Amino acid sequence: MKKTTSHILRGALVLSVAFGLASCGLPRSGPSKKEIYQGSVLREGDAFIVSVNPRVTQATAVTPALGFSESFLNAGVVGSDVIRPGDTLGLTIWENVDDGLLSGSEGAATSLSEVQVDGDGFIFVPYAGRIKAAGNTPEAIRRIITNKLEEQTPDPQVEVRRQAGDGASVSVMGSVGSQGLQPIERPNRRLSSMLARAGGITIEPEIAQITVVRGGQQGQVWFQDIFDDQRLDIALRNGDTILVEQDTRTFTALGATGQQTRVPFESQTISAIEAIAQVGGLQTGSADPTGVFVFRNEPAEIANAVLGRGDLVGDQRMVYVLNLTEPTGMFEARDFAIRDQDTLYVTEAPFVRWNKTISALLGGLNSANSIAGAASGLGG
Score class of each variant (00 low, 15 high):
1 M>E: 03
10 R>T: 13
11 G>L: 15
15 L>E: 07
16 S>L: 15
17 V>Y: 08
21 L>D: 02
21 L>Y: 08
30 G>D: 07
30 G>F: 12
32 S>A: 13
33 K>I: 12
34 K>H: 14
35 E>R: 05
36 I>Y: 09
38 Q>F: 12
41 V>M: 06
44 E>L: 03
47 A>I: 03
53 N>K: 10
53 N>E: 11
59 A>S: 12
61 A>G: 11
62 V>E: 14
63 T>W: 00
65 A>Y: 02
65 A>D: 14
73 L>K: 06
76 G>S: 15
78 V>I: 14
79 G>F: 09
87 D>T: 00
91 L>I: 14
95 E>D: 00
102 L>P: 01
103 S>L: 03
104 G>D: 09
109 A>Q: 09
111 S>L: 13
113 S>I: 10
114 E>H: 13
115 V>M: 09
123 I>F: 01
124 F>P: 02
130 R>I: 08
131 I>D: 01
131 I>W: 03
138 P>F: 07
141 I>P: 00
142 R>T: 02
150 E>L: 04
151 E>T: 15
153 T>M: 11
155 D>K: 10
156 P>A: 02
158 V>T: 01
163 Q>S: 10
164 A>R: 12
165 G>T: 04
169 S>M: 11
170 V>T: 01
171 S>W: 09
172 V>A: 01
172 V>I: 15
179 Q>S: 15
179 Q>N: 12
184 I>M: 07
184 I>H: 04
190 R>E: 05
191 L>W: 03
193 S>W: 05
194 M>W: 00
195 L>G: 00
196 A>Q: 13
200 G>L: 01
201 I>E: 06
202 T>E: 11
206 E>D: 13
211 T>I: 02
215 G>N: 11
218 Q>F: 05
221 V>E: 07
229 D>G: 02
230 Q>L: 11
231 R>V: 05
234 I>H: 05
235 A>M: 09
235 A>E: 08
239 G>P: 02
242 I>N: 00
251 F>N: 09
252 T>F: 00
254 L>S: 07
259 Q>M: 15
259 Q>R: 15
266 E>P: 04
272 A>I: 11
275 A>I: 05
276 I>W: 00
276 I>Y: 00
277 A>E: 15
280 G>V: 02
282 L>A: 04
283 Q>M: 13
283 Q>I: 04
287 A>R: 02
289 P>F: 09
293 F>K: 07
295 F>A: 12
298 E>S: 11
302 I>M: 13
306 V>G: 08
310 G>P: 00
316 Q>M: 06
320 Y>Q: 08
333 A>V: 06
334 R>W: 12
343 T>R: 08
347 T>W: 04
349 A>E: 06
359 S>M: 07
366 N>A: 13
369 N>I: 09
370 S>N: 11
373 G>R: 12
375 A>W: 01
376 S>D: 15
